[in-house]
Amino acid sequence: MPDGAQTVLHVEGLKTVFKVRGGEVHAVNSVSFDIKPGELLGVVGESGSGKSVTMMSLLGLLPSPPAEVREGRVMFEGRDLLKCTPSELRKVRGLGVGFIFQDPMTSLNPVFTVGFQIMEPLRRHLGMNKEAARKRAQELLELVNIPDAAQRLGDYPHQFSGGMRQRVMIAIALACDPKVLIADEPTTALDVTIQAQILELVRELRHKLGMAIVWITHDLGVIAGIADRVIVMYGGQIVEQAPVKELFAHPRHPYTRALLKTVPSVRGARAAKLNVIEGQPPMLTAVPTSCPFRPRCANAIERCAAENPLRRKVGPGHDVACFRDFDEKGALA
């Protein structure tokens, strides 16, 4: 995809702060990215790196207080979502942007039938009558490969298994044909064999429906399998962005390189000892004035402590927030 292609979602300088007892936590710091139509953007990072908070900030899904989106612009269909009124936002959620949450056990309402929950956005956003919504709901369940779709519409969430519930979540998110689908760790709570089923389903649906997808995960293996482009987050910032093959072949940021090395594989050679990233992820109690990865970085220089590196371009579609230059093999240039 060329760099100049139309974007569906444009995020610029997003900052989200949580007010906590005794101070603030700066969870998201100046995050900017674009999503193009039909693209699958992978977002990787450890817990606490700000990946979920970033996506939830976009749609105003964070409770405020304690959360506060302090700065930034989120452009979607010519509007800034951060300046929208609650009722305007409600129209965007579900209709323009679908959201799949991490835990399928807790994100469905236990006292309503699955059919009712799929029909809700259809009736609300698209103004369908009961009968049309029911028909569409059945189609959606069939789309996500749930057998006996017509019967299962009347079942409650507890009658479904974990993998099935996640399929229902996907069906709800897809109900109004959103332009962007945000999936927040949709397979983390599932077993590998069920994860494989869901990944296969998403691969299939992408080609059928052609929407842009943001896929948040901490599993590099999942990203490698489905993403077109990857954003790596650390300490509330984007530290590297690249097309998927480029990122895995030539990671430039020391964090990305370390992350790729710490994960053992089920195939190929087995290392005698695992590589380790020493230390802990940072506590983000203030606006970062230095590189957040500096305390754990083997290649830190004085400048890393003095200023926070901005992202700079190192290749086609590839940018990295690091002062130091690494060549293709990862050695210092």
């Binding site: 298994s161 974990g162 993998g163 099935m164 590998v192 064999t193 069920i194 994860q195 494989a196 089923q197 990944l199 296969e200 599993d219 590099l220 293996g221 999942v222 990203i223 490698a224 399998g225 998927v244 093959k245 895995f248 790729l260 994960v263 594989s265 089920v266 195939r267």
Partner: peptide, 23 residues
């Protein structure tokens, strides 16, 4: 084993997977 995703985009796109049906 075939369900475990591998952090290697080159292999991932071509790898043959056994997808189990059901739960």
């Amino acid at each position: 084993l075939s369900a475990v995703p591998e952090p290697n985009p080159e292999n991932e796109s071509s790898r043959r997977r056994i997808i189990l049906t059901g739960d």
